[in-house]
Design a protein around this nucleic acid. Structure first.
Lengths: 351, 351
DNA sequence: CTGAAAGCGCTTACAG
DNA sequence: CTGAAAGCGCTTACAG
């Protein structure tokens, strides 16, 4: 069934059918109703490819999850609490406002080609990129696409300082520095002076911010920063487990360990438990993100809630806003506050 | 940049450009290379809408998550461990074989209209439906679409028995009955004779199968089935919490409670803990699905691993297979075994 | 208010 | 081996 069939059945031209579909005002109510009736009766839906080819939007936003560090042979985004939640949140917001979401994950250069293709082949009206990390090459290639793009968790300074095309580009972050600061102040307030960190990927904006805040907090309070208390977990569960295990086997434990995300904190907890180190009795533990499991552990994990839902909403809204304004170079940026969440995994240590 | 530009630059016609893009064999190597070179240099990508309109596939599969029972005003798929994992798994498999995934969730009739539109508007080559439950109306509307469709977790008998168009329709399930049986046998083997159930949605295939197996196991072993030990949780966390709480307050507890999914088991655990009922000392608890949190709880949750990854792979492969064969009515169906996983939440009770 | 016509950017018989 | 042309199903100036 094509618009031509509808036109014939309703006794009008294809032009008129198109006008009622696209809500043109200059169609008499009587005609509109007649056409609408035929459309309904035949469950007619206009072919999207034809509409897009004729100049309409796709009503689809792309969502691209970049995770080049993981091993492609294993489960891909599957099992990564952080990414999975972004996918869900973006989908929810986009669907709620009537857009479809086109998803592709990126684990390899070929995968990245697929995201560029999604734009170049005009499959989407704009795209949200999660996890571009510190890949200026990737970001500049995306910016050249000239399509509405939202980067989630990306260093704004890097964009401002670059020769990047900032036209129709937006960045959505959360306040990782402040969030981490809250954890550190909490720990220090509880009397901890030997605080370690299980750091995330430092080629990631959030990874760097969380690390910086850790350093700053120690420095601010005149606390020592010990090399052996700095573990590189790279936001990966296995890596974090190995690092925590290494710490567990060493002769000296910090009294508290801040983990740059919950997945790593949970891995650390498992490693500690396996080595007979109790949380929080022997070591206090804090995470970041507030994944669903965080509240289920015993003790509950003290952490920071990452405002994923709000960030996803901002990203989706940003895309449609940028899509509206064809002209001018808009460069939006938002940063959402994160909420410190105190549970039982950190204890007070007396003097 | 359009194919015409490439043609001009390469000194050939659009026909030839199209032939090299589509890998026609009758293009001399020399010509092919010349065209390819121009394409590369200009980062040319053919417009998908035009290709589709001219008869090519969309290289996109739809993924539709139906969850009409939840309240739409709250977070949507976000926070539902089961659905989120399917989304991830299907995306991974589809992306790995070069397909995009178009997602839309369904919480209302309007949302369902959007999934039908995805087919009718020719946005996708086929679709995977998760959670259609026992909605014959929905399923028959989908079947009429005549597009490759895979139903996940749907009663095959209902399709066989119906006048449904089974052309290019497939069903992917897991062996819920057997999986539940394994849990029940385990419980009974541990000496439990008073076993309750926190049931899932009975308008869902898996919900019914798990309930049936529960009944059958009791019956087979001559154990009583007590009304007050049958709780309706509907696969919903809050509902499960409330029901578990009601049980906790009653004067008589079963010695073991089988929960039709892990989310509900976790809710029950929380409710019990809140009421001073210990697991497994006061009551043994088992779940289903093996969500990531299941192994993190203390005690670890005894459960059944739902083979989501394998099911997703089968669904994706099924779509492409059905898409190939244009002719004949194919009706595929697969059911994956589920694996019983013993952890610490069920204890042996002596005679 | 409305229709004929051009155009969107491809693909693929068809003819040579 | 290759090009001209028709066709995919819409939308939107344009003219009336």
């Amino acid at each position: 069934m094509r618009s031509e069939d509808i036109a014939r059945l309703a006794g009008v031209s294809r032009s008129t059918v198109s006008r009622v579909i696209n809500n043109y005002s200059n169609v008499p109510e009587e005609t509109r109703q007649r056409v609408l009736k035929v459309i309904e009766e035949h469950h007619y839906e206009p072919n999207t490819s034809a509409r897009v080819l004729a100049g309409k939007g796709t009503d689809t936003i792309g969502l691209f999850v970049v995770s080049t560090a993981e091993r492609p042979e294993v489960n891909r985004i599957y099992d990564n609490s952080y990414f999975a939640r972004f996918v869900d949140a973006v989908t929810d917001h986009a669907n709620a406002k009537g857009s479809y979401v086109l998803i592709h994950t990126v684990y390899s250069p070929e995968d990245f080609l697929r995201v560029k293709q999604a734009f170049l082949q005009k499959r989407i009206d704009g795209g949200v990129i999660v996890g571009s990390g510190r890949d200026p090459q990737m970001v500049s290639e995306l910016a050249e696409l000239q399509a509405p793009i939202v980067l989630i968790d990306y260093d704004i300074a890097e964009i401002i300082g670059s020769r990047l095309n900032k036209n129709r580009l937006a960045v959505v972050n959360s306040m990782d520095y402040e969030g981490t600061m809250a954890v550190m102040e909490h720990l220090i307030g509880l009397g901890h002076r030997e605080i370690g960190i299980l750091a995330g990927r430092l080629d990631t904006y959030s990874g760097r911010e969380r690390f910086k805040a850790y350093e700053m907090a120690l420095q601010h309070h005149g606390l020592p920063m010990r090399e052996d208390f700095i573990l590189q977990g790279q936001f990966l569960k296995e890596k974090a487990y190995a690092e925590a295990e290494r710490l567990a086997r060493s002769d000296k434990l910090p009294t508290a360990l801040f983990c740059a995300n919950d997945d790593m904190a949970i891995s650390a907890l498992q490693a500690f438990t396996r080595h007979g180190i109790r949380v929080p009795e022997d070591i206090s533990l804090a995470g970041y993100d507030d994944v669903p499991s965080a509240s289920l552990l015993s003790p509950g994990l003290t952490t920071v809630r990452l405002p994923i839902y709000e960030m996803a909403r901002a990203a989706v809204e940003s895309i449609s806003r940028m899509q509206q304004k064809k002209s001018g170079s808009s460069f939006e940026t938002v940063s959402f506050p994160a909420e410190f969440i105190q549970r039982g995994s950190c204890r007070s240590i007396g003097p």
